[in-house]
Write a protein that binds this DNA or RNA. Structure first.
Ligand SMILES: [Mn+2]
Ligand SMILES: [Mn+2]
Ligand SMILES: [Zn+2]
Ligand SMILES: [Zn+2]
Lengths: 150, 150
DNA sequence: ATGGTATTGCGACTCATTCTCATTCGTATT
DNA sequence: AATACGAATGAGAATGAGTCGCAATACCAT
């Protein structure tokens, strides 16, 4: 449940493109969306916005703390956005099916703070991504192993 | 201390470009080097290699497990490489001076494994980056605060 | 309405990285 | 030592995500 976002309260005037992008994000809270995902969503479900505007608005939203940007996928770096979770969470990404699990581990969170403190670092942010093979894909893998052996 | 690397043992024939890139990496273990850093290092200290070859060789090294690739810097994604640490470590990056501290925290490491297990994930890899302001930059910040107030 | 500021649309641009392909190298075989 | 053949390289073109510049619009306060 992400609180209803009011652009004005975030210091952004309510323009048509901004409202459109916000709607796109709110309609897809289950996913992490690339700029292109937003672009295509609006093209199909709403009104077309040029990519440059999509990027610009997402950047404005990021600055305003409305969305968060991530680069999963160490390699092919296409960045993705999601509405900012007032809590905060980290991500576990399946390298087979690209599915993403979100989690929050208090132990890890507090260790990070301790580590930073010990080094005299003033911690402002962090990103933790776990990569692996999700339960579903592990099973599929086991299946095809069998098939091959037959 | 990173063990002497033998290309043949890693399944790579010893060609001049490969040896050059390897030397560049070994001469700069204190840093995380971008492809361009490697390129410029070789240009100045050794023999010029085309960027395409630098990228190609670094990719080969990555596949062979000789180097690791990271994208620090959530924003301007220029990737960096380092000789693979047989231990493994995570990174804390100063957002002011771009300096990088390496650390390894057994608690965090083992929590990650537990988290993955609990979700049925088969963990293959992870990346943890802490962002903040390093001790040095915190001080500088404090200094300039004072100066402004005068 | 008027003027001034903020935002948008459009295309051009950047720049890291990858790709293509002709040439060259490495190595095994006659 | 010539030949053959796949592997690796060099040079530059191509790709593609993301950014920029700027004229046209929209928004807002007088
Ligand atoms: Mn998320
Ligand atoms: Mn490192
Ligand atoms: Zn999966
Ligand atoms: Zn610093």
């Amino acid at each position: 449940m992400i609180a209803k976002i009011n652009l004005k309260e975030q210091g952004l005037t309510e323009t048509t493109p901004r409202l459109a992008v916000l709607k796109a994000m709110e309609a897809n809270t289950a996913q992490h969306m690339s700029a292109d995902d937003v672009y295509r969503y609006l093209l199909e479900r709403d009104r077309p916005l040029p990519m440059s505007t999509v990027y610009r608005v997402l950047a404005q939203f990021e600055q305003a703390g409305i969305v968060e940007r991530h680069s999963f996928d160490a390699e092919r770096t296409k960045q993705v956005y999601e509405l900012k979770d007032p809590e905060h969470h980290d991500h576990m990404i399946c390298i087979k099916c690209r599915s993403v699990h979100e989690f929050l581990d208090p132990q890890i969170e507090s260790r990070q703070i301790e580590i930073a403190e010990n080094l005299g670092f003033s911690l402002t942010d962090h990103s933790l991504n776990l990569y692996g093979i999700c339960a579903g894909c592990v099973q599929k893998d086991a299946q095809s192993e069998k098939t091959i052996k037959q």
